[in-house]
C-alpha cells in the first residue's frame, strides 16, 4: 500500500469521526490536534477505527506517533505492508 493510500485511510477515518471538520486543507507536517477540533477521545476513535476497519493495532504507548498526518503515514505504513 502506498503512503498516499495510508494517508487517505487516516483522512477517511477523521472525516467520519469529526464530520464537521474540513480535512482537505490539512497541513501534513503540523499537529492534527491544533488544526482540527480533536481531543484525546477522538484519537482513541482513530485507533479503534484502524483496528475495526483494517485490523491494524496501535498500542497505547504509540498514540503520540499519530500526532501529525505525516507521522501517521510513516508509523502506519509498515503495519499496512
Amino acid at each position: 500500500m502506498t503512503a498516499n493510500n495510508v494517508r487517505q485511510i487516516v483522512l477517511d477515518i477523521i472525516a467520519d469521526i469529526a464530520p464537521d471538520e474540513d480535512v482537505t486543507s490539512i497541513d501534513d507536517s503540523k499537529s492534527l490536534r491544533e488544526q482540527l477540533d480533536l481531543d484525546s477521545m477522538d484519537f482513541l476513535d482513530i485507533v479503534m477505527e484502524l483496528r475495526k476497519r483494517h485490523k491494524v493495532e496501535v498500542p497505547q504507548e504509540d498514540y503520540p506517533k499519530l500526532a501529525t498526518l505525516e507521522s501517521c503515514v510513516s508509523y502506519l505504513s509498515p503495519k499496512f505492508a
Binding site: D37, M41, D45
Partner: peptide, 18 residues
C-alpha cells in the same frame, strides 16, 4: 450548531450523532 470543544459537541462526536 457547529460550536466546538464543548461537552455537548464531544458527546455528538463520540456517539456519532448529529
Amino acid at each position: 450548531k457547529g460550536e466546538k470543544g464543548k461537552p455537548f459537541s464531544k458527546l455528538l462526536k463520540q456517539l456519532r450523532l448529529s
